[in-house]
Design a protein around this nucleic acid. Structure first.
Lengths: 292, 292
DNA sequence: CGGTCTCTTGAGACGGGTCAAATGCGGTGG
DNA sequence: CCACCGCATTTGACCCGTCTCAAGAGACCG
């Protein structure tokens, strides 16, 4: 932690040719690191027994705004997020930054590079973050030694696929306000998954990044927050969101084009009533869906 | 092939509760089936040696409009597309059908269910299609026996992730015409990958499905085709597309909001000229990019 | 304390959604 | 073989939602 962080690229970075912007390796070398990794992959201590303890699993620190992966880079390592959060994004030919996903603890990074051998996306930390680094060659050994871990890896890959599908579903053709509501519910569920509050959320993504993820202009996101807040679904202060009425927010998020359209405008609750008949049913599902 | 196909659901199906619409198992039982599967995963015959030949890999036929996976279904099997094509889609709470991806030969289906254990999406054949079916329990044995295959599976999973990211990038915030152009280029590249013409393409997806994939109204897709055709980029007849000017189509596809906007309207080539200065450079990259 | 950033809010224009109707193809049954 | 029906596709007209441009208020940083 003495070593200064290598120039993390600015938050709204335009990734240029070279420069392996990379945060330094942290000195930390705890004993339970492997155990920690194994737990993140959803396995118990018993899996630990079958693993060669000489395997080196480095712990990396990536500071806010720092890059972990750079588009085009050769794939040498797979990462598992331990703490913090990161965004992955693709810089399109025209220079537009398309945010692809949000990585929270327990998730895999760099797995898209197994195919083709180079990173298809850039990954940047949204806050100070730690990741376990598994060199691919060691990973192969691990998979051979420990079939349980091999399967855990498959499951983790599968989860990434599910996440990607969720993002696509979020962007299903609907109004921007509904998209934003879906985003918040999605985030809320994921926070719950990692044991954090699903009601009070600190947005790590800026408006611009959220906008990119939802494929809208950033002003639209801003207005959307205002609208949802005025409707009483949530309170927002800068990057802090508090979901005040989960059930109604979820109700609102169901609207699609073609279906009964809901507007969050106007006196709260009035026009929402139209399709809220299902709210009781809704509430019964809520616990199942949110893991509150 | 004597057995009649179990009621395939109609092409524009709304998946309701029950009914395991499932096409029947085909009688075919060729010798080289395993070899075929292994080849689809990008492995050579040498991998075949390490595999227990008693492993049962069934070949399934799914007829046009027939379902292979049903949302919510328990995960028991992984499929590898052998011939044909399928779409995977999610039925959102409001009944809207969101198309998530297009599966072509060599791709994995059902892999999203490794996590959570049940299918998160429905998969329907767009034409008569054959898939290799690997029961999960046997798959595990295979992975143990044959590390090469295990890694091939990881790569295949990784590829699915890349595909998902591509879809997201396609939908990056741009005009609907540009989105359509990107879709066509994407499809063109994938057709090339599987050894088919990248210039003449038979669309297996209907306008409605394309619209869903691109998150626009189906009328907009229709108009988009007309626009691109009038601009001279392509010719379209019903479901047959012929890309007439790949370079200019690609050029057009680069436009994003914020960047220099291009309109395909009006006399072809006029307004395109503005940012076509790079066309020479473009052409040099083309071969690298398209695998024509 | 200024510079630079993000975020918010407003005003106006335009793209694309919605509704509607015409066309054409494919499949079905007489 | 033909008439009929349903569905996909196309095209037009209209209007709302969202993008764009612009300005101003806060934050954060040096």
């Amino acid at each position: 932690m003495m070593t200064p962080v290598l120039a993390p690229f600015e938050s709204s970075v335009r990734v240029d040719r070279p420069a392996v912007h990379r945060s330094h390796r942290a000195p930390a070398a705890e004993r339970g690191r492997l155990r920690d990794l194994v737990a993140l992959l959803g396995l118990g201590d018993e899996a630990l027994q079958t693993i060669d303890p000489s395997i080196s699993v480095a712990l990396w620190h990536v500071y806010q705004g720092g890059g972990l992966l750079l588009e085009g880079e050769l794939a040498t390592t797979l990462y598992v997020v331990r703490t913090g959060s990161l965004k992955s994004m693709k810089t399109l030919e025209d220079g537009y930054e398309q945010v692809l996903s949000l990585a929270l603890p327990g998730e895999l990074l760099g797995s898209e590079a197994l195919h083709e051998g180079h990173q298809p996306a850039t990954v940047v930390a949204l806050q100070d973050t730690t990741v376990h680094a598994l060199p691919l060659c060691e990973l192969r050994q691990l998979c051979l030694q420990c079939p349980v871990l091999d399967r855990a890896l498959q499951r983790a890959l599968s989860r990434q696929l599910v996440r990607a599908a969720e993002v696509t579903a979020m962007n299903a053709a609907v109004s921007s306000d509904v998209r934003l509501a879906r985003f918040l519910l999605w985030l809320s569920a994921r926070m719950a998954d990692i044991g954090q509050s699903s009601h009070r959320i600190l947005l790590r993504l800026g408006r611009r990044d959220i906008a990119s993820l939802l494929c809208v202009a950033h002003e639209t996101v801003s207005r959307g927050f205002t609208t949802l807040a005025e409707a009483g679904y949530l309170a927002i202060d800068r990057k802090e969101v508090e979901i005040l009425d989960m059930a109604r927010l979820r109700q609102f998020s169901r609207c699609t084009r073609g279906g009964p359209q809901e507007s969050a405008h106007g006196t709260r609750g009035v026009e929402v009533a139209r399709c809220v008949a299902a709210t009781a049913w809704d509430a019964s599902l809520e616990t199942a869906l949110t893991t509150d």
